[in-house]
Every structure is written in C-alpha cells, then in structure tokens.
C-alpha cells in the first residue's frame, strides 16, 4: 500500500511540472526560437555524451519540453544508456532572478559481463538563478530516483550463483541527490553552458564511485 501511494504521488507529480535535463537562459526565453537542439559532454556516473531536442511551448508560463539520449564512453556504446523525457518550467521571477522546476521520466540501461539492468526512474530538480539576456549563473539541487529495475543475469554469473533471481525489483533500487552550479553565454543562434556539482547517495553519507557531475553543452536554436 505504501508503495502504491508512493508511485501514485510520483505519477501525479510528473504532469504537474514538465521540464528537461538541459540548461537554458530563461532571461532570454521570450526571444528565442521554439526548437532547440542540444549536444553535450558529461561526467555523470561515467564520461557520457548526449543529444537532445527541446520544444518551447506557447504558454503563459515559459515551459520547455525535452527528450534526451546519452551514453557512456567505452568500447560498447549501445550496452549502457540513459533517456530522459520531461520538461522544465520557469515558475516565477523577481527581477532577473528566476525559479525553475524540472521533472524527467528516466529510462536507462546498464550491461556488463554479469548482468543487464533496465530501470525506470524520475529526476526532479529545482534551479534558482540570475538570468540576463546574454548570460546567466544559477544553482541547482535535484534527486534522481531509480524506481523499479529489471535484472537479468548472464550465464557467467549464474555459473557462480545458479539460484540468482532475474526479474523486476521494487520498490526503489536506488537514488542519488545532486547539487551544483551552472553558467552560460547566450548568442542569437547558439548557447554554450557548463555545469558542475556533487553527487551523494540517498542515505546522504555515501558517495557514488564517480562522486561529481559536470556537463558542457551547446544549444543550437532555430524556428
């Protein structure tokens, strides 16, 4: 019952916001074209590369919808990946200070010689920043929750432990908080930005093996 309440709360939270993982200049949101292609290089649990598409809605409050795909470096570029679908909304601003909420639905995959994991999760975050038309600087805090994960194990691992159980595991198999800063420069057709911060597991004591995150990205804007 507790699990169902938890899932329901997430299910109802998601449509209430809508956002994306990428970084925009909200001080220039009213002037920008509606279509934005984003490419980025990340340090996020590994060195990863990402590409995304963003669509700016015609709405009273600035809202940008987003879909993004990223994958880690390495010899096998299809065995691990992360997709995010969601959006971000500029709720309010006081002068040049803007308050932004982001929510993503996450689907990700991991595979090595022992196991293949498929996970559905959510990534919720908030950003407060100072946005001018040509530049911005902001701070963000967020939580990336791995809600439900499917485990499938290789014959190699089963030769070690034949009784290992494949299948769906829930409730949550994990979660990480993150917090950091971001800044960028805005041009007519291009934005460049960088962000960096710290990751900590949901127990607030343990750090992931890759304890920091960072991203350098370029937004290409067109009508």
């Amino acid at each position: 019952m507790k699990n169902i309440k938890y899932c329901l709360s997430i299910a109802f939270l998601l449509p209430a916001f809508f956002s994306n993982a990428q970084t925009f200049n909200w001080g220039n949101a009213g002037n920008d074209p509606r279509h934005i292609i984003n490419i980025n290089v990340n340090a996020e649990y590994a060195v990863t590369y990402g590409i995304g598409y963003n669509y700016k809605l015609r709405s009273k409050l600035p809202i940008i919808l987003n879909a993004e795909y990223s994958f880690p470096s390495g010899k096998n570029i299809t065995d691990d990946f992360k997709t995010r679908i969601g959006g971000q909304m500029d709720w309010a601003h006081v002068g040049n200070f803007h308050f932004i909420s982001k929510v993503h639905g996450v689907f990700r995959r991991y595979e090595n010689d022992y196991a293949r994991l498929l996970n559905f999760g959510t990534d919720l975050s908030g950003v407060i920043g100072y946005y001018k038309s040509k530049w911005f600087i902001a701070g963000e805090i967020g939580f990336d929750k791995a809600i439900i994960t499917h485990f499938r194990h290789s014959d190699l691992l089963k030769s070690n432990y034949p009784d290992i159980k494949d299948g769906w595991y829930e409730p949550s198999t994990g979660g990480n908080f993150y917090y950091g800063v971001q800044a960028g420069l805005t041009g007519k057709k291009f934005d460049v930005y960088a962000k960096a911060g710290k990751l900590t597991e949901q127990d607030l004591k343990t750090s992931p093996m890759f304890p920091i995150y960072g991203q350098f990205g370029v937004n290409v804007k067109f009508r």
Partner: peptide, 21 residues
C-alpha cells in the same frame, strides 16, 4: 583510462542501485 568500458562498467551502475552501509 577514464573513458574505458571497464571504468564505466564499474561506475555507471551507481545510478541504478544504492544501499546504505
């Protein structure tokens, strides 16, 4: 190497599974 498959196989799993000590 920091871009190797071996390293990402070790670190990428941290977003799927976490556990307290």
């Amino acid at each position: 190497h920091f871009t190797s498959e071996t390293l990402n196989d070790a670190t990428y799993q941290d977003q799927f599974i976490t556990g307290n000590e």
